[in-house]
Protein backbone atom coordinates (compact mmCIF):
# COMPACT_ATOMS: atom_id res chain seq x y z
CA UNK A 1 0.00 0.00 0.00
CA UNK A 2 2.87 2.30 0.83
CA UNK A 3 3.84 3.09 -2.72
CA UNK A 4 0.21 3.51 -3.80
CA UNK A 5 -0.54 6.49 -1.57
CA UNK A 6 2.79 8.13 -2.13
CA UNK A 7 2.35 7.93 -5.90
CA UNK A 8 -1.27 9.01 -5.61
CA UNK A 9 -0.25 12.03 -3.54
CA UNK A 10 2.41 12.92 -6.07
CA UNK A 11 0.03 12.71 -9.03
CA UNK A 12 -2.72 14.67 -7.33
CA UNK A 13 -0.09 17.28 -6.45
CA UNK A 14 1.04 17.49 -10.09
CA UNK A 15 -2.60 17.65 -11.20
CA UNK A 16 -3.36 20.46 -8.73
CA UNK A 17 -0.30 22.37 -9.88
CA UNK A 18 -1.49 22.08 -13.47
CA UNK A 19 -5.01 23.23 -12.61
CA UNK A 20 -3.64 26.16 -10.60
CA UNK A 21 -1.33 27.05 -13.49
CA UNK A 22 -4.32 27.26 -15.85
CA UNK A 23 -6.83 28.80 -13.43
CA UNK A 24 -4.89 30.70 -10.75
CA UNK A 25 -7.75 31.06 -8.25
CA UNK A 26 -6.66 30.83 -4.58
CA UNK A 27 -8.96 27.84 -3.97
CA UNK A 28 -7.05 25.87 -6.61
CA UNK A 29 -3.64 26.26 -5.00
CA UNK A 30 -1.97 22.84 -4.66
CA UNK A 31 -1.87 22.87 -0.86
CA UNK A 32 -5.64 23.25 -0.79
CA UNK A 33 -6.86 21.33 -3.83
CA UNK A 34 -4.64 18.25 -3.48
CA UNK A 35 -5.50 17.57 0.20
CA UNK A 36 -9.22 18.05 -0.51
CA UNK A 37 -9.07 15.54 -3.36
CA UNK A 38 -7.07 13.12 -1.21
CA UNK A 39 -9.48 13.39 1.72
CA UNK A 40 -12.38 12.67 -0.65
CA UNK A 41 -10.49 9.74 -2.14
CA UNK A 42 -9.53 8.06 1.13
CA UNK A 43 -13.07 8.55 2.41
CA UNK A 44 -14.46 6.77 -0.66
CA UNK A 45 -11.81 4.03 -0.33
CA UNK A 46 -12.59 3.63 3.42
CA UNK A 47 -8.97 4.26 4.33
CA UNK A 48 -8.40 6.01 7.65
CA UNK A 49 -6.39 9.23 7.76
CA UNK A 50 -3.85 7.58 10.06
CA UNK A 51 -3.33 4.74 7.61
CA UNK A 52 -2.82 7.26 4.83
CA UNK A 53 -0.37 9.26 6.98
CA UNK A 54 1.56 6.09 7.80
CA UNK A 55 1.90 5.30 4.10
CA UNK A 56 2.80 8.82 2.99
CA UNK A 57 5.04 9.63 5.96
CA UNK A 58 8.26 9.72 3.98
CA UNK A 59 6.89 12.66 2.02
CA UNK A 60 6.59 14.57 5.30
CA UNK A 61 10.06 13.35 6.18
CA UNK A 62 11.39 15.27 3.16
CA UNK A 63 10.62 18.52 5.01
CA UNK A 64 13.89 17.91 6.88
CA UNK A 65 16.20 17.93 3.84
CA UNK A 66 14.01 20.65 2.29
CA UNK A 67 14.68 22.91 5.29
CA UNK A 68 18.40 22.20 4.97
CA UNK A 69 18.22 23.08 1.27
CA UNK A 70 17.49 26.70 2.20
CA UNK A 71 21.19 27.01 3.06
CA UNK A 72 21.84 27.16 -0.70
CA UNK A 73 20.03 30.45 -1.46
CA UNK A 74 21.45 31.92 1.75
CA UNK A 75 24.97 30.99 0.68
CA UNK A 76 24.46 32.24 -2.86
CA UNK A 77 23.12 35.59 -1.67
CA UNK A 78 25.20 36.04 1.45
CA UNK A 79 26.62 39.39 0.36
CA UNK A 80 23.07 40.71 -0.19
CA UNK A 81 22.06 39.49 3.27
CA UNK A 82 24.98 41.30 4.86
CA UNK A 83 24.11 44.44 2.92
CA UNK A 84 20.48 44.42 4.13
CA UNK A 85 21.07 42.97 7.60
CA UNK A 86 19.49 45.90 9.48
CA UNK A 87 16.38 45.93 7.29
CA UNK A 88 15.98 42.17 7.66
CA UNK A 89 16.47 42.14 11.43
CA UNK A 90 14.14 45.04 12.20
CA UNK A 91 11.31 43.98 9.90
CA UNK A 92 11.42 40.31 10.91
CA UNK A 93 11.62 41.12 14.62
CA UNK A 94 8.57 43.33 14.12
CA UNK A 95 6.88 40.58 12.13
CA UNK A 96 7.40 37.89 14.77
CA UNK A 97 6.05 40.14 17.54
CA UNK A 98 3.02 41.12 15.46
CA UNK A 99 2.44 37.44 14.65
CA UNK A 100 2.55 36.32 18.28
CA UNK A 101 0.51 39.19 19.74
CA UNK A 102 -2.15 39.41 17.04
CA UNK A 103 -2.65 35.65 17.24
CA UNK A 104 -2.88 35.83 21.03
CA UNK A 105 -5.38 38.69 21.08
CA UNK A 106 -7.58 37.22 18.34
CA UNK A 107 -7.53 33.82 20.09
CA UNK A 108 -8.69 35.48 23.31
CA UNK A 109 -11.44 37.19 21.34
CA UNK A 110 -12.86 33.87 20.13
CA UNK A 111 -12.31 32.21 23.54
CA UNK A 112 -9.97 29.52 22.29
CA UNK A 113 -9.25 26.95 25.02
CA UNK A 114 -5.78 27.11 26.58
CA UNK A 115 -4.29 24.03 24.80
CA UNK A 116 -5.26 25.53 21.46
CA UNK A 117 -4.17 29.02 22.50
CA UNK A 118 -0.62 27.94 23.32
CA UNK A 119 -0.36 25.64 20.31
CA UNK A 120 -1.43 28.36 17.88
CA UNK A 121 1.17 30.97 18.97
CA UNK A 122 4.14 29.72 16.86
CA UNK A 123 1.91 29.18 13.78
CA UNK A 124 3.66 31.57 11.40
CA UNK A 125 7.05 29.80 11.29
CA UNK A 126 8.30 26.71 9.48
CA UNK A 127 6.96 23.36 10.78
CA UNK A 128 10.09 21.78 12.35
CA UNK A 129 10.85 24.89 14.43
CA UNK A 130 7.19 25.60 15.21
CA UNK A 131 7.04 22.12 16.74
CA UNK A 132 10.09 22.84 18.91
CA UNK A 133 8.67 26.17 20.11
CA UNK A 134 5.31 24.53 20.80
CA UNK A 135 6.97 21.85 22.95
CA UNK A 136 8.96 24.52 24.79
CA UNK A 137 5.97 26.63 25.76
CA UNK A 138 3.73 23.65 26.57
CA UNK A 139 1.62 23.35 23.43
CA UNK A 140 0.64 20.26 21.44
CA UNK A 141 3.03 19.79 18.48
CA UNK A 142 0.50 18.01 16.23
CA UNK A 143 -2.02 20.77 16.79
CA UNK A 144 0.68 23.35 16.02
CA UNK A 145 1.40 21.55 12.73
CA UNK A 146 -2.26 21.95 11.77
CA UNK A 147 -2.12 25.70 12.49
CA UNK A 148 1.13 26.05 10.54
CA UNK A 149 -0.52 24.38 7.54
CA UNK A 150 -3.62 26.60 7.76
CA UNK A 151 -1.29 29.62 7.96
CA UNK A 152 0.47 28.44 4.80
CA UNK A 153 -2.79 27.98 2.91
CA UNK A 154 -4.19 31.33 4.07
CA UNK A 155 -0.88 33.08 3.41
CA UNK A 156 -0.97 31.93 -0.19
CA UNK A 157 -4.51 33.29 -0.48
CA UNK A 158 -4.22 36.65 1.32
CA UNK A 159 -0.51 37.42 0.72
CA UNK A 160 -0.69 38.74 -2.86
CA UNK A 161 -3.84 40.73 -2.00
CA UNK A 162 -2.20 42.44 1.00
CA UNK A 163 0.89 43.37 -1.02
CA UNK A 164 -1.35 44.81 -3.72
CA UNK A 165 -3.62 46.79 -1.34
CA UNK A 166 -0.68 48.34 0.45
CA UNK A 167 0.98 48.89 -2.95
CA UNK A 168 4.25 47.40 -1.78
CA UNK A 169 6.76 47.98 -4.55
CA UNK A 170 10.20 46.79 -3.53
CA UNK A 171 10.95 43.11 -4.14
CA UNK A 172 12.80 43.01 -0.80
CA UNK A 173 9.73 44.07 1.19
CA UNK A 174 7.49 41.67 -0.77
CA UNK A 175 9.82 38.75 -0.14
CA UNK A 176 10.29 39.51 3.55
CA UNK A 177 6.52 39.80 4.07
CA UNK A 178 5.72 36.51 2.33
CA UNK A 179 8.41 34.53 4.14
CA UNK A 180 7.55 36.11 7.50
CA UNK A 181 3.80 35.64 7.15
CA UNK A 182 3.62 32.20 5.61
CA UNK A 183 6.98 30.39 6.04
CA UNK A 184 7.89 27.92 3.24
CA UNK A 185 4.53 28.27 1.51
CA UNK A 186 5.05 32.04 1.34
CA UNK A 187 8.51 31.44 -0.07
CA UNK A 188 7.01 29.15 -2.66
CA UNK A 189 4.60 31.95 -3.55
CA UNK A 190 7.51 34.41 -3.71
CA UNK A 191 9.03 32.29 -6.49
CA UNK A 192 6.11 33.39 -8.69
CA UNK A 193 7.20 37.03 -8.23
CA UNK A 194 10.91 36.78 -8.97
CA UNK A 195 14.42 35.90 -7.87
CA UNK A 196 14.92 38.69 -5.34
CA UNK A 197 11.53 38.06 -3.72
CA UNK A 198 12.40 34.37 -3.42
CA UNK A 199 15.77 35.06 -1.80
CA UNK A 200 14.38 37.50 0.74
CA UNK A 201 11.48 35.22 1.48
CA UNK A 202 13.84 32.33 2.33
CA UNK A 203 15.85 34.70 4.50
CA UNK A 204 12.68 35.90 6.26
CA UNK A 205 11.55 32.33 6.87
CA UNK A 206 14.81 31.37 8.56
CA UNK A 207 15.15 34.56 10.59
CA UNK A 208 11.51 34.36 11.69
CA UNK A 209 12.08 30.79 12.88
CA UNK A 210 15.17 31.66 14.91
CA UNK A 211 13.78 34.86 16.39
CA UNK A 212 10.54 33.10 17.41
CA UNK A 213 12.64 30.35 18.98
CA UNK A 214 14.34 33.12 20.97
CA UNK A 215 10.98 34.56 22.12
CA UNK A 216 9.96 31.05 23.18
CA UNK A 217 13.06 30.71 25.34
CA UNK A 218 12.51 34.17 26.90
CA UNK A 219 8.90 33.20 27.58
CA UNK A 220 10.00 30.13 29.57
CA UNK A 221 12.65 32.07 31.48
CA UNK A 222 10.40 34.91 32.57
CA UNK A 223 6.86 33.59 32.74
Amino acid sequence: MMIVFTILTYFLYLFSKKVYGKIPFPIFQPLLLAPILLIMLITIMHVSANQYLEDAKWLSHMLGPATIAFAVPIYKHFSTIKKYMVTILISITTGTLVAIFSTYLLSKLIHLNSDFLISILPRSITTPIAIEVSKEIGGLPTLTTVFVIITGVMGGVVGPAVLKWLSIKTPIAKGLALGMGAHGVGTNKAMEYGKQEEVFSSIAMIFAAFITLGWGTLFILFI
Binding site: S91, S102, V157, G159, L166, A177, M180, A182
Partner: peptide, 29 residues
Amino acid sequence: IQGLEIVVLIAISTMIVMGMTAITAERIL
Protein backbone atom coordinates in the same frame (compact mmCIF):
# COMPACT_ATOMS: atom_id res chain seq x y z
CA ILE B 1 -16.63 23.55 16.69
CA GLN B 2 -14.32 26.47 16.00
CA GLY B 3 -12.92 25.62 12.59
CA LEU B 4 -14.22 28.61 10.70
CA GLU B 5 -13.34 31.03 13.50
CA ILE B 6 -9.78 29.73 13.64
CA VAL B 7 -9.35 29.96 9.87
CA VAL B 8 -10.63 33.56 9.90
CA LEU B 9 -8.37 34.35 12.88
CA ILE B 10 -5.33 32.99 11.03
CA ALA B 11 -6.25 34.83 7.82
CA ILE B 12 -6.64 38.17 9.62
CA SER B 13 -3.49 37.74 11.68
CA THR B 14 -1.47 36.70 8.61
CA MET B 15 -2.67 39.80 6.75
CA ILE B 16 -1.58 42.03 9.64
CA VAL B 17 1.79 40.24 9.90
CA MET B 18 2.54 40.51 6.19
CA GLY B 19 1.33 44.10 6.03
CA MET B 20 3.39 45.23 9.03
CA THR B 21 6.50 43.38 7.83
CA ALA B 22 6.26 44.83 4.33
CA ILE B 23 5.61 48.39 5.57
CA THR B 24 8.47 48.21 8.08
CA ALA B 25 10.89 46.90 5.45
CA GLU B 26 9.82 49.48 2.88
CA ARG B 27 10.16 52.39 5.37
CA ILE B 28 13.71 51.34 6.31
CA LEU B 29 14.66 50.92 2.65
